[in-house]
Structure formats: C-alpha cells, structure tokens
Amino acid sequence: MTEIERHETTPGEQVFRVFNILFFVVFTLICVYPFYYLIINSVSANNLSAEGLINWLPKHIHFENYVQVLGLSGIGTAALVSLGRTVIGTGLTVIASAFLGYMFTREDLWHRQFWYRFVIITMYFNAGMIPMFITMKNLGLTNTFWVYVLPAIVAPFNIILVKTYIESLPKSLEEAAALDGATTLQTFIHIILPSCTPILATVAIFSAVGQWNSFQDTLLYITDDKLYSLQYLLYQYINQASSLANMVRNGGGVSAVASVAQSQTPTSIRMTVSVVVVLPILFIYPMFQRYFTKGIMLGAVKG
C-alpha cells in the first residue's frame, strides 16, 4: 500500500510534503517556544534575563526566584485561593452534573420536561456583566470565596453530556436496583456514578481548567486582596512591571525599582509567577488530552 503510494508520488506532491512538514514544525515551535522561554528565564541569572540575554539555553541555573516568589505572602494566599476554587468548584459541578443528568433521565420526575428545559435554556441567554455584578452584590457574594464556586455548579452543557451518556447505558442495572428496593440516591451512588466515570472525567478536566484560568470573576467581584486568584495577581504583576520598566526608560526612578525588587527584577518576578501559573496546565494537559478531545467531540455532536 505505502509502496504503491510512494511510486505514485509526483514531484509536485513531494514539494508539498516538504513545505507541509516545514509549516507544522515552525508552527509547533511558535506554540511551544514561549513556554520554554519563560521557564529558562525563570531559572537563569536574574541580571542576564533582565537584559534579554537568555534566549536558547538557561545560564547560571538557580532556583532562588521560586523560593523568593513562593515566599511572598500574596502569592501563597492566591495559590491557595486558585487551588481551592479548582478543587471545590470542580468537585461540586461534577456531582451536580452527574446528579442532575441522572435525574433528568428519570421519567417519573415531576414535570421532567419542563424542568429540564428550564435549566438548559439558560445556556442561550445571560443578563450581562453589570446585572451579574449587581446580583452578586445583592446576594452578598462579592468579596467571598463562594462567588467563585456557586455560579459554576449548575452547568447546562455538562448536564446534557451526562444525560446523553446515561441514556446510552443499558437500563438493566438500574432496573435491577429498583427491584431490590434501592432508593433514588442509592441507585445514583452505587449504580450510576461508577458507570459514568469516563464522561465525568471529561467534565472534571474542563471545569478544572476553567476554574484555574478564570480571571474575570476576580476582576468584577473581588476587591479583598486575600481572595485574589493567581491569574489576577499575575495580571497585576505584569502591569506593575510595565510601569516600572517605563519609569526606568524615562530615566526617572531607578531607586524606586531597586527598592521594590532588590534581588528580584520585575522580569524575574513576572517570569517566575507565569511559570507557577502555567505549570499545572503543562503537567495535566498531555496526561488528560484524550478527555479533552472527547469533550470537544461530544460537544460538537450536540452542537
């Protein structure tokens, strides 16, 4: 088969093949290099990285930046907030999606169709940013941890995914459980949950990435710096660094820079925090890629 194809390859096709591979190699490098750049700069000598001299290989490797940055009180708190919202938020939305997805397959649920539509239709409208802000204020959720978690618990799209999945499972186990006199909750916990793990893994991974990356909710609802997420803190660091850099360029406040970052340069802080923020994604993504891929396929089928 491949032999025949090779015979049939025309010169034009060979040129295409070379350029095709070249394009993908270059584009892949463009996708990967920025991450590599951040990492090598965060472990190289700070004076070199501040001057932009670390482009290909790290020089004078040290991990002082990580020790210093993780020691900053703001970062530790923000890391806890980000970790907390990712774990609690993901856990709750997985449970809610599984439970609601299951309940909406139960034909004896009171006015099942109505309530299902009542939940799903919320996918297609939203009140907008300012009404949401006023709502959170009225509900007393601004400047609380729960503003990160509560609005994300019921996710219509996840419910559709789980419901479709459960409907594709054989009914026999559920019926057997019902004959044994199992209650709704018992059936859910002992029969449905274990058989839904593949789809729940997909839901969990998407929701975890969403929670970890979320930025807008901190911006809108949080002014208490103890509740800042890592993403928001990173944004602040970048902007501070840029204003510091501007001051240096205008020849003004060299001393101001020195007092803010004596051993640490603005560059080193930015790079190190960026790596701390991106590292979990870099580790998790390749491991769970098949779940991500499955997620988009299921979404497309429904879409």
Binding site: L38, N213, Y232, L234, Y235, I238, S274, V278, F292
Partner: peptide, 10 residues
Amino acid sequence: FISWVLVYSI
C-alpha cells in the same frame, strides 16, 4: 488551555 492573562504575560 492557558488563560488570556498568561497569553499577555507571554
């Protein structure tokens, strides 16, 4: 899978 904040950082 990275946030826009991180894209901006890059």
